Amino acid sequence: MMTVDTKPGPDVAHLRRPARVRLAWLLLVLAVLTLVMLASVAFGSRAVGWSDITAALAGTDDTLNQAAVVKRIPRTILAALVGAALALSGAAMQGVTRNPLADPGILGVNMGAMLAIAVGMTTVGLYTATAYIWAAIAGAALSSLFVYAVGSLGRAGPTPLKIALAGAATSAALASLVVAVVLPRGDIAENFQSWQVGGVGGATWDSIGHVLPFLAAGLAICLLCARALNSLALGDDMAAALGERVAVIRGIAALGAVVLCGAATAVAGPIAFVGLIVPHLCRLLVGLDHRWLLPFATLVGAALLTAADVVGRVVNRPDEIEAGIITALIGAPFFIYIVRRQKVREL
């Protein structure tokens, strides 16, 4: 997850936005997030009215519509939490590596978490939610280190495109290993395959309670590194001249990103491209200052994944399309666009 590139990066002030513009975008993002969360509660295999929603929020589940709302509330909250975690993880990874292609899915971090869970389930009998999360974080960390090591080979060092290619190859290899590990175990294969697609359909209050402390820790770590990531954007030499301990900051910020990604993957499966799309969009809205970029990415990521979950429930009623498929349909063309940009070399 680290890089040895010491070339000066873009001036953080170059795309700075006035405070009133940022506040306007903040209010708009909060409004959109509120609307998509309400839509997530209202729409699904059956649509419900406002009276049913208010009754369910008051604790009533006497009718089928009210019971549906009660079931959708934890799903909505988990979608927002996972989307926020993946977007913040991607923004932190891009800041640490100065790599516009950095994303937990593209760099193989998600697949590393998934393989660790698969191995734990089939060998040592992991069965608790907390154990799944710890295993996923360990797998995500090992996968990140491996991808960085492979992408650093050669004279040019860890260029963005080399790391992205190493991540794609690693993801493919790890996906094959997951199949090889899980397929002989018919007792867990069916449930694992449904989780492997990536979605929040199995959300419960228990799962939210188990993953929330990990997400809160990862959020705090990344946000505390925001100012230092601004210095890293100026280049390693300049950051060191400003008094930053470059290697330490990269390690801490990368740790926060891995914790977020591993915990989100453990509870929702490997959902790709949220961490790629959202940071680029937020840079257009609020500029390059990570003190604004990271919180905005958190909110926009929550709105994006919640909206993807709503779309997946509505377009194929009464069946569902998992949110991970919807984000892949959106993210794959965006990834191609980023790769083809002339300035793909670094942020």
Rank of each mutant, 00 (worst) to 15 (best):
A253T: 09
V310S: 11
T34P: 11
V315D: 12
A308N: 03
G218I: 07
V69T: 08
L126T: 13
S231E: 14
M238T: 15
V32S: 11
A141P: 05
L23I: 12
G95K: 06
E244G: 08
S171F: 11
T97Q: 12
A47Q: 02
A129H: 10
M111W: 12
P100V: 13
P279D: 04
R227F: 13
A85F: 05
V182T: 10
V197A: 04
C222Y: 03
L15Q: 14
S51F: 06
M121A: 05
I73T: 04
I249F: 07
V109Y: 05
L299G: 08
L212F: 05
V259W: 04
L304P: 04
R16I: 02
L161W: 13
A189F: 15
G256D: 04
L299P: 03
L64N: 14
W205I: 02
D309I: 09
A13D: 12
Q193I: 13
L347Y: 07
H290M: 03
Y148T: 15
A141H: 04
G186I: 15
A87M: 06
R185T: 15
S231Y: 14
A118C: 10
G202L: 01
M93C: 11
G105N: 05
L285Q: 04
A31D: 14
S194R: 14
G243V: 01
L57W: 07
A169H: 01
R245G: 06
G235Y: 07
P279M: 08
L165T: 02
F273Q: 00
V200T: 09
P158E: 05
G154D: 11
V246L: 07
L212K: 05
V21Y: 11
A129D: 09
A84Y: 02
A68K: 07
D11G: 15
I221H: 02
G324P: 05
T298L: 15
I221Q: 01
A156F: 14
P8D: 15
T128S: 08
L145Q: 10
D5L: 09
R98L: 03
V21P: 06
G331F: 04
D11C: 13
A323V: 01
E346Y: 08
V246K: 00
D5H: 06
V96H: 03
L329H: 11
V200K: 02
L23M: 14
G151V: 08
L86A: 06
Y337V: 12
F334G: 08
F273T: 06
G95M: 07
L115M: 09
T128H: 02
D289R: 04
A131P: 01
S40C: 06
A303N: 09
V48D: 00
